[in-house]
């Protein structure tokens, strides 16, 4: 209930920001035609704000997927994994796929509680090698 009210408030705010700030700065104004560049985005901003408001006044009574209510710390762990992927992307930009993939896979598996050396080796060495072999060698497509 409280969750839904917060969600609703967020979308009201989002709709308002879209209407008054994002769309005017990011979408060209055109003065002819039937569906102008701004027509549909503005309609969507209004729809989002309306639905948000409705959600504040009539929050749903649905039960959210069990995992997210029972295990609040999953949020944190998911954020940790997401952060790791973002770091992986940054490293890939700097050092390329072949140097980044093995440590990234290793870190992911380690955080997922994998400790058996054989599986760690398979995931961190064999899989990147397999990808390199098929994509870069067999298909002759560049890797990141």
């Amino acid at each position: 209930m409280a969750n839904d009210r917060l969600t609703g408030a967020f979308f009201v705010l989002f709709g308002v920001i879209l209407w008054f700030w994002i769309i005017p700065t990011q979408v060209d104004a055109v003065d002819y035609g039937w569906v102008k560049p701004r027509t549909v985005p503005l309609a969507l901003a209004a729809l989002l704000a309306f639905c948000g408001a409705a959600l504040i006044f009539a929050p749903s009574s649905e039960i959210l997927p069990e995992t997210h209510n029972n295990h609040k710390n999953h949020w944190l762990r998911a954020a940790l994994f997401a952060g790791l992927l973002v770091v992986g992307l940054a490293l890939m930009k700097a050092f390329g796929f072949m140097l980044t993939a093995p440590p990234l896979a290793f870190a992911l598996m380690w955080l997922a509680h994998e400790r058996r050396p054989l599986w760690l080796l398979l995931g961190a060495v064999a899989v990147p090698a397999f990808i390199w072999l098929t994509v870069a060698q067999l298909l002759e497509r560049p890797l990141p």
């Binding site: 992986g88 997922a112 599986w119």
Partner: peptide
Amino acid sequence: SAPESFIFSSALLMCFVGVYLASGGL
């Protein structure tokens, strides 16, 4: 039926490569 940790990390790597190829960049 391999361990989750292995499957998920490998799947993530494949998604990285697949999207890189399909959308042409990092």
